[in-house]
């Protein structure tokens, strides 16, 4: 390669590396601002500010959704499988909202640890499958549960 071109190539690559490092450092410093929501474990650790509107997200805990019978009020727990936070919401939930599915809620964390949400968005994962496959997976999981349960029952029964 021509010496002049080699020099130009070195300069360009050097500048690109420098730029990359600068952007990496600044996005790393701003990571909490770039992240869309707080995990339940961050909230449990007290990293999330109270008094201001924040977003919190995680999985809706199985069996935790309690709907009010004569209003749109709903109560549920959101977990990241290490900690969980109770959420209260008054409004229409997105279609994909379900137990075991992800949500991102905007609202305020109360001093008692309850999160009052004014917006709940559904977060879905990168898994796609036909309904038949999902059904058979569910059936397999149910089967496993019924196999596990008697064993548990007998252990505690004695």
């Amino acid at each position: 390669m021509h010496a002049k071109r080699k020099k130009r190539l070195t300069i360009v690559l050097f500048l690109l590396c420098g730029l990359g490092v600068a952007v990496a450092l600044s996005t790393y410093a701003l990571r909490q601002n770039i992240s869309l929501f707080y995990d339940p474990s961050q909230i449990a650790a007290g990293e999330a500010p109270g008094e201001v509107r924040i977003r919190a997200g995680g999985m809706v805990e199985e069996g935790s959704v309690k709907r009010d019978l004569d209003s749109l009020k709903v109560n549920f727990r959101v977990t990241d499988y290490t900690a969980s936070v109770t959420m209260q919401y008054d409004g229409i939930l997105p279609d994909l909202f379900a137990e075991g599915q992800g949500v991102v809620a905007t609202g305020r964390l109360q001093p008692d640890g309850v999160f009052i949400a004014d917006q709940v968005l559904a977060k879905h994962d990168e898994q796609y499958m036909p309904p038949e496959v999902a059904e058979s997976l569910e059936r397999a999981a149910m089967l496993k549960k019924t196999v596990d349960k008697p064993a548990e029952g007998s252990a505690s029964g004695y």
Binding site: L36, F37, Y38, L121, K123, H124, Y128
Partner: peptide
Amino acid sequence: EWWNTLHQPAT
């Protein structure tokens, strides 16, 4: 992958 997002990870 680096941050919490509403968008799901790559399929």
